[in-house]
Design a protein around this nucleic acid. Structure first.
Lengths: 338, 338
DNA sequence: CAGACAAATAACAACGTTGTTAATAACGAT
DNA sequence: ATCGTTATTAACAACGTTGTTATTTGTCTG
């Protein structure tokens, strides 16, 4: 098949074990031979066989990512950045779009160094039964005894509510999955409800607007409902980028201006939210911070599993852009009431 | 590390080579021992080590997909279906979102059975320099001496123009990348221009509306321009799902109804286009047909490379949905003129 | 110039699997 | 019993790599 170290050895006139050492930059081979071997290897377009490498049970420098939900932009962005970050540290990523369980099985057979599992809802698979010889880092909200990493979604939405409240908003709507089994979505809703309660703002049932899926069409519909309320909210918190897009469009279509008529805060701290006509204020963990944190965590899990934390919580941030302003009725400066 | 055939052998009280044969369902081992070994293997949760398998140079049943452009729904859908299709045939897919060249290199190191490269534009990488020991199937439009598979995009758009013409439309706009270096996008434009010329329809420069990227925002903007034309088109052909979404919104916002006021045909034959309020008529190769064809081709490339075709062209189809109708001015039935 | 010692390289086992070849067991037929 | 013949199983080399151990080569010392 391809070029092997034995081929290089033959051409360079040394033994293949010397080639191996040279390629691994061992101090046991003379600098001169080392450079010669490296030259030959480059000339012959040598590609190390990761299968063989892994077989002798050393590192592969390969990380598998289980990525079941394709259509969420925030996740795509995150994964792109993680890949870039890991590449910078000389690790390579392969993805699987199969359900977590079979992805993990596949990666076990492929013998990657570590597996990263992104899983939105706990129920999608009975994760407890996922067994893996290879270390797995879960990106999931629910508690588990395995290493995982999560995002304080509740905190994020609370920050959004408080921010809007600080601006003077009292009628704050929420667009997201309501009666959902998805842990992550439920956390966001809880954040909304808790914050509203804390601030003694009434949660009208019609302010909590349900969507079935995080797609823009649902956001669009939800916004329609929200705007029909007798006492229309002056601000909307949206649970994802996609939903925000839909809301954005619905408002645009109705000539309702952001932020003059309605303020909008979106979950998902990704740069794409700044690319809209009106850059959208957002909450969440900044995607770059998240990516580098995750990359760092996986590498740690590989290189020193003993002192990897079991659970790691990332704090959300709010980034002010231009989609929020004090409500018209109150107008002017700061929080007039309260 | 994990459970190996030797472990199974020890437990089952046979030699490991017998285990290997049993697991491969060889006729050389007694049915009785075979079942016993299989039971033990299952009990011990044996996962074959693909690295070792590949080392002895047999099949891996793994296919690598190089997938550089994440954000196109049509591609996501296609890849999801290909994965499903291959899984049905007992092949497993891993993806890489790196640029084609490094993805191919990675898959070579990982020793997959075959590589599928999706590449929109020729220039993104100097593909001619991509060298691979492992068979590669390109999904690309441009000619190459390597096995590839392409879609008649030109034909697709021509079909759209002819269809609209047949309905009576004369003023047909096109939204897509115009002065692009991307071969695939250029083909679509050419399809529009050729068909218009054939039908002796004037191509006003303002009917050919340029977008920078296939994202909905661009489609939205483009539609805005198109609708400002002094002699507004009665039909629009859009070069991708995303663009169509943008156009759809722009029309909605302006209370211009589809199909009464403006007809719309979208490139990308994916089911999602049917999910809009008004299901959009589309052209392109049906994503399911494409997926099963591609899956079939890769497998053939693996199992009998000698009689794999070098180039395979898939014909586009038009699927009628509800976004097209005869233009108002002409009204009524069929093609009144011509 | 023999001996000690270090530097450089070569040889070899191992990783988990498969395919081939060798060994053994079972069974008739002589 | 003895010989083939077949069914079944065991033994072993190979795949491409690494880490360890053995061998060669070179240099210095007395």
């Amino acid at each position: 098949m391809g070029v092997t170290i034995k081929d290089i050895a033959r051409v360079a006139g040394v033994s293949y074990s010397t080639v191996s050492k040279a390629l691994n930059n061992s101090s046991l081979v003379k600098e001169e031979t080392k450079t010669k071997i490296l030259t030959v290897a480059r000339e012959m377009q040598y590609q190390p066989n990761l299968a063989a490498k892994k077989l002798v049970s050393k590192r592969n420098r390969t990380i598998g990512i289980a990525w079941p939900t394709l259509e969420r932009l925030a996740l795509s962005t995150l994964i792109t950045r993680i890949t870039a970050e890991l590449e910078r540290k000389n690790y390579y990523t392969v993805l699987s779009i199969n359900p977590a369980q079979s992805a993990v099985a596949l990666f076990n057979r492929l013998q990657v160094d570590a597996i990263l599992v992104f899983e939105e809802s706990r129920l999608s698979q009975d994760t407890t039964t996922i067994s893996s010889e290879i270390p797995v880092l879960y990106f999931a909200d629910w508690q588990t005894s395995r290493p995982h990493l999560c995002v304080s979604r509740k905190q994020a939405i609370r920050k959004a509510v408080h921010y809007l409240h600080g601006m003077g908003h009292r009628k704050i709507g929420y667009v997201g999955e309501i009666g959902t089994s998805s842990g992550t979505q439920f956390e966001k809703l809880k954040g909304y409800e808790e914050a509203m309660k804390e601030l003694a703002l009434p949660i009208k049932p019609e302010y909590r607007c349900h969507i079935d899926e995080p797609v823009w069409q649902e956001g669009y519909k939800a916004a329609g409902l929200l705007l029909q309320c007798v006492d229309r909210p002056t601000a909307i918190i949206s649970s994802s980028y996609e939903t925000s897009l839909g809301i954005f469009m619905a408002l645009k279509e109705r000539r309702i201006h952001i932020p003059e008529d309605v303020s909008l805060i979106s979950y998902d701290h990704i740069p794409q939210l700044a690319d809209l006509d009106i850059p959208i204020t957002a909450v969440g963990v900044p995607v770059d911070r998240m990516a580098s944190h995750i990359a760092h965590s996986v590498i740690q899990l590989i290189e020193s599993p003993e002192n990897s934390p079991v659970c790691d919580v990332l704090e959300a941030e709010l980034i002010e852009r231009e989609s929020c302003a004090p409500p018209k009725s109150i107008g002017g400066i700061g929080s007039a009431t309260c």
